[in-house]
């Protein structure tokens, strides 16, 4: 499928809106958060950490699907709810930052096709999520949530993380 320039513009606006919405969502229903100021948007993306045990397998399909997946995704608040409802947060933690049981998923997630393939048939300790329990559409919403995770401030700007 090919998109015209206008369609790309619409996609970009939708993605931007999704990121903005995601920045305001509440990660846990039990504990209404009081977010502090969002991190600066000018911050460079962090380095990707080294592959962790549940690093997805390489996907056979090419990557361009990623843009379409983002464009087709449900709003990220729905993705956030699905991320929580289906238990993704249990290992990958509330903001998808990763923890002892699961690696960081966002921001800058792996291409959607690889992400979806791994969710369906994981090779590490992650339990499988079949299409019976999570639809492809819900996976896309979750993926949009992952994409929308805020980029943290650079470590050098966080005095508490000084060596």
């Amino acid at each position: 499928m090919r998109f015209s320039g206008g369609v790309w513009l619409v996609i970009a606006i939708v993605v931007a809106l999704m990121i903005n919405v995601a920045a305001q969502i509440r990660p846990t229903p039990q504990a209404p958060p009081r977010r502090t100021a969002p991190p600066p948007r000018t911050a460079p993306p962090p380095k990707r950490e080294a592959p962790e045990p549940a690093e997805p397998k390489p996907a056979p399909a090419p990557a361009p699907v990623q843009a379409k997946a983002a464009a087709d995704a449900a709003p990220t608040d729905a993705g956030a709810a699905l991320y929580r409802k289906n238990g993704c947060y249990e290992c990958h933690v509330n903001d998808a930052q990763g923890g002892p049981q699961g690696p960081r998923l966002g921001p800058n997630p792996i291409p959607f096709q690889r992400f979806a393939a791994y969710v369906r048939n994981p090779s590490g300790d992650m339990p499988p999520f079949t299409a019976k329990v999570i639809s492809d559409q819900d996976l896309q919403s979750i993926y949009a949530f992952l994409q929308s995770r805020p980029t943290p401030p650079p470590v050098r700007e966080i005095p508490l993380l000084a060596p």
Partner: peptide, 19 residues
């Protein structure tokens, strides 16, 4: 150790508080 500090920065301002 450097990588650990980078990992710690994710969800830095999130609520509930990141571990």
């Amino acid at each position: 150790a450097d990588r650990a500090r980078v990992n710690a920065s994710f969800a830095w301002n999130a609520s509930p508080v990141s571990t």
